[in-house]
Design a protein around this nucleic acid. Sequence first.
DNA 1: GTTAGCACTCAATCACATCGAGTGCTAATT
DNA 2: AATTAGCACTCGATGTGATTGAGTGCTAAC
Lengths: 343, 343
Amino acid sequence: MLTERQSLILQVIVDEFIETAQPIGSRNIAKKKQITYSPATIRNDMADLEDSGYLSKTHSSSGRIPSEKGYRFYVDHIMSPLKLSQEEVSIIKGQFDERMIELEKVMQNSAHILSELTKYTTLVLGPEVYETKLKQIQIVPINKQSAIAILVTDTGHVEHRSFAIPSNVDQSDLEKVVNILNEKLVGVPIIYLDQMIESEVVDLINRYTSNFEQSYRILQQALFGSQSSSLYVSGKSNILMQPEFSDIEKARSLFNMMESEEQIAPILKANKQGLNISIGHENQVEAMNNCTLITATYNMGEDQVGTIALLGPTRMEYAKAVSLLDLWSSYMSQSLDSWFNEG
Amino acid sequence: MLTERQSLILQVIVDEFIETAQPIGSRNIAKKKQITYSPATIRNDMADLEDSGYLSKTHSSSGRIPSEKGYRFYVDHIMSPLKLSQEEVSIIKGQFDERMIELEKVMQNSAHILSELTKYTTLVLGPEVYETKLKQIQIVPINKQSAIAILVTDTGHVEHRSFAIPSNVDQSDLEKVVNILNEKLVGVPIIYLDQMIESEVVDLINRYTSNFEQSYRILQQALFGSQSSSLYVSGKSNILMQPEFSDIEKARSLFNMMESEEQIAPILKANKQGLNISIGHENQVEAMNNCTLITATYNMGEDQVGTIALLGPTRMEYAKAVSLLDLWSSYMSQSLDSWFNEG
DNA sequence: GTTAGCACTCAATCACATCGAGTGCTAATT
DNA sequence: AATTAGCACTCGATGTGATTGAGTGCTAAC
């Protein structure tokens, strides 16, 4: 375990490095007013900290920089939550002051605001569509051969998908099916729609329409095919501002990763309830090996419904990032609660 | 005007520079098999070309690189359209083979495909919503105080917007309004909706509902407020691969520009019918001063409905880019025609 | 009009010296 | 025993020439 003094030195080094991105030497540490020891003493502790893996050097006679283990210790044992400025608090709060109607807009705005406040990239993963409930199904024919199915959920989410109408399916068949679906399925969680249809609706449809097979299968495919997920990313270009990504190659690989939703969504989903910090190689994905990802979940009642995350260099302003995410997710959870209680 | 030989030399320099991004010297030009002159002769012509502004040097004893004027001449007078490979043609064609249902998906895919083929950034601006016709209006109440208005156009575009329901407006009022709107307005171009409502529908609504003022105004605001435009961008990170953007600052300013739709859309719209090439400072926006933007419009019958564009460094593969855009926009126009004739 | 020849320019590269912020270690001090 | 002062040492960063080589412009010859 670290001594009191070692811990203090580690703290100074991490704080300083977060700010300057430069290796820190013993003399500079000694100048800090919290520090009452001579450079030599500090050097000894620094050597110990390096031996136990909390610090490392860029070359044999350079100052020290925190290792991933060092950040980990800082995050777990040293860091204290940052008091956010009045302005920061009110920007986030303001976001939730208006009546929330469309969840998607809120998430979009949130991503934007947080990336502005932190200068990191913000990722917001909304509630899975199938965790919400069906509000209404609509079919809008576009021309003789095609139509659009629109599905609205109780979160105000609108999902739509086009499909071709086979020539032997009459439009009135489709209408009947839609009517039945609406009658029976409104209020059902999207995740249960499939089972529900099989168990309750199939017979009914068969009774009323002649072309059940086609009209139903088509609809099913259109509505329950690949769910468009709800990932909002903002401030991608902030990454370019970080000196650790002045190496174009690193920036490129991160950008490539962020362009594919399929890669990011599972990473965000994998995190547990509450706050999670993944530092450097704790991230499985190689492109993120010199990044830190901080995720926070938000809830609806007891259930975790979504995740928000900040992605930055390992040299991240941990205290600020954590405080902002904490604040945001509590507002968000609260907002979701009142939304569903009033609604 | 340029002599035959000067033009040839310019062509070699531009072609070579496009490929290598390095200044070209007279000896290297002389080695080309199309060239039958000695380095000294070429040097004289190069000096002339520099005097008249078609070439420039990076320093006093370096080879030459094309100036913007040089590119302009190349594009206007030298370049011949590139024969696309069988593969490229079939990738683009394949895109339009399936029956087109949702215009948006087509545009999304197109942006993706073209950025893959060119390694430049692709921007696709879809038909303005107001240029298309109304297919249907729907209102889906989410809870007591809020609802979502959904508008479907004949291009398969789905627009939705949430709004709060004032307490004194009954849901049945809204429904009546929606019914009237649908009866009277289906098939009307979105751009005329506003006038049409004032001239034809207002009286009717007043006759049937008690709370016309609120219900109508709300709907109007929801439906005809800020139109979400339809800009699709793909391959942004390709920019990072170009050596001219290894200067992080330039990359950053481009990224910032591309993050705001408000900045890009007008630029794309400003271009005239057909193919347009804006080289370097011909672009008004400062961030694009070392870029070339090639835009092509696509049509529906006689009317220009949208724009597709490639954004790359001024050192762009002009011939290929132009050929690809030409091919794409002809397929697209054709596809749109058959869509509206069959539909 | 074209080309050979030549002096000249300048970025790029390398070798070398210098500087200074930093270290590790030892011996003195508290 | 813990701390500190002192000192030799390391190594990146910076600066200075020297060298190289790809390029030019100009002049004179073809």
